[in-house]
């Protein structure tokens, strides 16, 4: 049985976290600190991660496997994205507790790292430097998503 208080237990997600755009600015020691705040979950194929409309408390990072992001449009399920290793989703939950805007479901067995808003807010208080690096990457990510959406809407109107 695993000892929950084992101080030397290194998280296997550490290597993966280093490659993530969200944590790209963090130094090794900063990354190690963030890693202590991460939770790991394993989802089987077709298992629901969260539902649209559910209150969001955490961001999910795909360490292994594949996740489908879907939405209900007029009673039909429409897939809006398929996310692989190194990507993340549910990032708006880091900023507020607004309801999830889409469903997330594992396409195949997937390992996910989960980072909670409460821990992010505590980082803002205690390690402002780390939190600001994460927040900057988060802002970039959301900005690029908004640009993509604007482009998609523009293209659609043009067509």
């Amino acid at each position: 049985m695993r000892n929950p208080f084992n101080r030397n237990a290194a998280s296997p997600s550490l290597e993966r976290l280093r490659d993530l755009s969200l944590f790209v600015d963090l130094s090794q020691s900063e990354l190690r600190l963030v890693d202590t705040l991460m939770h790991q979950r394993t989802y089987l194929a077709n298992e629901v991660i969260f539902d649209e409309g559910e209150e969001g408390h955490a961001i999910y990072i795909v360490l292994d496997g594949e996740v489908a992001i879907t939405r209900q449009v007029q009673g039909e399920t429409s897939e809006i994205a398929r996310l692989g290793v190194g990507t993340f989703f549910g990032e708006l939950a880091l900023l507020d507790g607004a309801p999830r805007s889409a469903d997330a479901r594992a396409v195949r067995e997937s390992k996910l790292a989960v980072f909670f808003r409460e821990d992010f807010l505590e980082l803002l208080d205690t390690h402002g430097r780390i939190a600001s690096k994460i927040a900057r990457q988060l802002a970039r990510h959301i900005g690029s998503r908004m640009r993509e959406m604007a482009l998609a809407v523009g293209a659609h109107q043009h067509l």
Binding site: P4, F5, H39, V48, I49, A58, V114, F116
Partner: peptide, 27 residues
């Protein structure tokens, strides 16, 4: 020293479906 580790330990015992709610409860 171990508060954070204990929180992680407890969260691991929780099923995926109620994981987010349970962690939010602990917070």
């Amino acid at each position: 020293r171990d508060g954070q580790r204990f929180k992680r330990f407890l969260s691991e015992a929780v099923p995926n479906a109620i994981f987010e709610r349970s962690l939010n409860l602990l917070n």
